[in-house]
Amino acid sequence: MLTAVKNQIRVCVFSVKYNIMREMLNKVTFLTNILFMMLNNGAFIIQWLILFRLKEEIGGYSIHQVMLLWGLSASSYGLSHILFARVFSLPEMIVNGKLDCYLVLPKNVLLSVMTSATSTSAIGDFLYGFLVICIFCFRIDRLLLFSLFTITGALIITSFSLLMGSLSFWFVRAEKFSMHMTNVMVSFATYPDGIFKGGTRFLLYLVIPVGLAIYHPVHIMTSFDVGMFFTVIGYTGLLTAAAITVFYLGLRRYSSGNLMESGRM
């Protein structure tokens, strides 16, 4: 059992390493992708500078907290796309029957699929998050918490995408749905939770898991709370387990290549 886990991890490390090596083949492209993504994210600082000119606090957030929010969103999103980029194109792979080559390997299908690609620009997102923290609100304990929440955040984003993506096993038309749900999560993750009231808050904590991926951690980093901390950790585990279960349930319905493809018009 333990050796199996060890071997599995070894294969995953191999995959991620080779993925990044592939991206690095063209150094100029690799670096522009990373750098421009950081600039791209940086453009939103302008948005917030303008908004904070109009009002001193927005949704109970100061500009520093908004930066913390943005940083955590970027680095979680980044980490999830560096390690598990394929989860975000899972619906397309399911619908077009592209899981075949992962199903003939004696390793965990889900991990093999998820780790089979990476996104270079995500490295930019990931670094941007840490850069923002170091510039705007550096504190050593905060940095440690930030790193931890980047991991839980990445797991939550990945699991949520996996959950939504797995719907394609049942409904071919869900292909685009999961992409939009991931977008929705990102849209919410870059605005302070204080501007949402009542029903929306309920939605953000239960349906779209942005509350526990981003908002809670931001609050914890501002003022530490043990209860909240363990809620985040527990929730991450729960959502991950649920997503994995649904994926394997769906896999039984997987219908591979050619026929499906010729059936699409």
């Binding site: 050796t3 199996a4 071997n7 070894r10 294969v11 191999f14 080779y18 090596m21 592939r22 083949l25 075949d100 080559c101 003939v104 390997l105 004696p106 390793k107």
Partner: peptide, 29 residues
């Protein structure tokens, strides 16, 4: 079992055959 699909590639294009084989070695423990 082993599978070879003539039209589908299972090897990593940017790696050498040797590195690829090492990868498959790891996959099959």
């Amino acid at each position: 079992i082993g599978t070879v699909f003539g039209q589908k590639e299972q090897l990593w294009a940017h790696l050498t055959p040797y590195d690829n084989f090492r990868f498959f070695g790891a996959i099959y423990d």
